[in-house]
């Protein structure tokens, strides 16, 4: 914790790699070395990379499930309240509580809520939108949207110290290492 205060000037150290395999190996090594506040960056999803940085279970499925249940319950509840309590109408001799008919909008609202909760939940969990981020201060980092792979160990990590971490990162044989200013 004191280390973080010693080097407030930078966000972390950033290593660049050419292949996904190198990135995953580096992330595994960083985890094994005891780093926890670090992340891997890649131009496409790599299942192994999120495992390697120690992120095993996404909470998105739970949010989608809860959204779906809420949507379905409120969908049926809305129809029940409208067609049975607030404004009962006899249509074609069908019962007020016409469950076969109510299933259709209930289903649609289940999907709608599940989907929207999932999308907003995913962005919220990822802390997006965040148009600016210290990593964007490094010019070469723009290549993460093209063909390069990056590993950033953050200065906020308790194990971070400028020289030690620098040496550790050199041992990973990256193509380059740069400091990430705030």
């Amino acid at each position: 914790m004191s280390h973080a205060q010693l080097s407030p000037a930078i966000y972390g150290l950033l290593a660049e790699f050419d292949t996904p395999t190198d990135l995953v190996d580096a992330a595994k090594a960083a985890h094994a070395a005891g780093y926890r506040k670090f992340d891997a960056y890649s131009p496409f999803p790599i299942e192994e990379a999120s495992e390697a940085v120690g992120f095993h279970k996404s909470r998105v499925p739970l949010i989608v499930l809860v959204g779906g249940i809420l949507g379905g319950a409120s969908g049926y509840g809305l129809q029940y309240w409208i067609n049975c309590i607030s404004y009962p109408l006899n249509i074609g001799g069908k019962p007020y509580q016409s469950w076969p008919a109510f299933i259709v909008p209930t289903f649609e609202l289940t999907i709608l809520f599940a989907g929207l909760c999932g999308v907003f939940g995913m962005f919220a969990l990822n802390g997006l939108p965040m148009p600016h981020h210290p990593l964007f201060n490094v010019d070469r980092f723009s290549l993460v949207t093209r063909d390069k792979f990056f590993l950033c160990v953050e200065a906020a990590d308790p194990k971070f110290d400028m020289d030690g971490t620098q040496r550790f990162m050199e041992s990973l044989r990256p193509t380059s290492i740069s400091e990430v200013p705030h």
Binding site: G92, P100, A101, I103, V104
Partner: peptide, 12 residues
């Protein structure tokens, strides 16, 4: 099965 049921139920 539901399609058959709903259509026949609604047509009555």
């Amino acid at each position: 099965s539901f399609s058959q049921w709903l259509i026949i139920w609604a047509g009555n």
